[in-house]
Simulated scan of single mutants.
Amino acid sequence: MTDFEPKSLRSYSQEDVQKILQFAIARQADDQNKEFSYEQLVEIATELEISPECLNLAEHDWRSQASEIQQRRAFDNYRLTRFKKRFGNYAIINGCLMLVDFIGGGGLSWSLYILLFWGMTVGLDVWNTFQAKGEEYEVAFQKWNRKHQFKQTINTILNKWFKAWQT
């Protein structure tokens, strides 16, 4: 599409309209931290002839998606923290074993075998920790998410029980 075409002949797909409006809203905002009120959102939707029901469903979908993104970030942070702990354990224990081997025998012999074999498991742990796509990642995320939700439910029940017990 060129700039020389008459405006009445131009047509856009739904995806193109979304992108163009996204760019326009971003340019209209003086800074990226500008927030819009719910009333402004309703006004924009009304001007675009979007029904209030459709807007509410879209907002619900957006909240769900944002919540899942936040949960995935928490899961990735959990995996990274767990990896750092395991790697720290690996480094400390193998460092101590190498020191004992060096002091005891004047060189390194048997500790290198432990370092090598345990190092392979650390390598696999690196692979599993930093691979953020695929079926294994999804299974691990779902398992973590169920466990996390279960803990939240138990905490909520216990907090309500303690509050009721205190009064």
Rank of each mutant, 00 (worst) to 15 (best):
R27I: 09
R27C: 10
Q28R: 10
A29F: 08
D30C: 07
N33I: 04
N33Q: 07
N33V: 03
K34G: 02
K34V: 10
K34H: 08
F36K: 08
F36M: 13
S37D: 10
Y38T: 15
Q40G: 05
V42C: 12
V42P: 02
V42A: 11
V42L: 13
E43V: 05
I44R: 14
E47S: 07
E47R: 14
I50T: 03
S51H: 05
P52L: 10
E53I: 05
N56G: 03
N56K: 13
N56W: 06
N56C: 05
A58Q: 04
A58E: 03
H60L: 15
D61M: 10
R63K: 15
S64D: 14
Q65H: 13
S67D: 09
E68V: 04
I69A: 14
A74C: 09
A74V: 07
N77Y: 11
Y78F: 05
L80M: 15
L80Y: 15
L80C: 13
T81N: 14
T81D: 10
R82E: 15
F83W: 05
F83Y: 09
K84R: 13
K85V: 12
R86P: 00
G88I: 01
N89F: 11
Y90D: 00
I92Y: 02
I93Y: 01
G95R: 07
C96H: 08
L99G: 15
L99Q: 09
D101E: 06
D101L: 08
F102C: 04
I103F: 11
G104P: 01
G104D: 03
G105S: 10
G105C: 06
S111K: 00
Y113R: 03
Y113A: 04
Y113C: 03
L115Q: 02
L116Y: 07
F117W: 08
W118F: 13
W118G: 05
G119L: 09
G119N: 07
M120R: 05
V122W: 00
G123S: 15
L124G: 12
L124C: 06
D125M: 12
W127K: 07
N128G: 14
N128K: 13
T129N: 01
Q131N: 14
Q131Y: 02
K133Y: 09
G134F: 02
E136W: 00
Y137G: 02
Y137S: 02
E138A: 13
E138L: 10
F141E: 01
K143F: 12
W144C: 04
N145H: 07
R146L: 13
H148D: 09
H148V: 06
Q149W: 11
